[in-house]
């Protein structure tokens, strides 16, 4: 089972890297990009039989290690046939 964990800084936390990326985009002419928030992305290959079990395990991993609850929050997607757009 594949779980994807997206970790981002909480909205109340200033993101110096995201701000720098936004400024670089503005320099390149991407004026329509109003703000950038940078985060982390994890793919977990989990030995689990149900989506619920995989999600529970991924959430536990995120709580314990992948995210720091003081500054970050996370979102999890779980599935066997997650369709991807890759380029």
């Amino acid at each position: 089972m594949r779980a994807r964990v997206f970790v981002t800084l909480k909205p109340s936390v200033f993101d110096p890297q995201g701000t720098t990326v936004a400024e670089a985009l503005h320099t390149l002419g991407f004026d329509a990009v109003k703000d950038v928030r940078q985060g982390k992305y994890f793919e977990l290959d989990i030995d689990a039989t149900t989506v619920e079990a995989a999600r529970r395990l991924a959430a536990e991993a995120a709580d314990k290690l992948l995210a720091n609850p003081v500054i970050e929050s996370y979102r999890i997607e779980v599935g066997t046939d997650v369709k991807e757009t890759v380029r």
Partner: peptide, 17 residues
């Protein structure tokens, strides 16, 4: 110490990056 919870809070990237 912050990550271990022995002190409160967390560190962010420097404001200057």
């Amino acid at each position: 110490l912050l990550e271990a919870g022995l002190l409160p809070g967390a560190m962010l990237r420097n404001r200057s990056v």
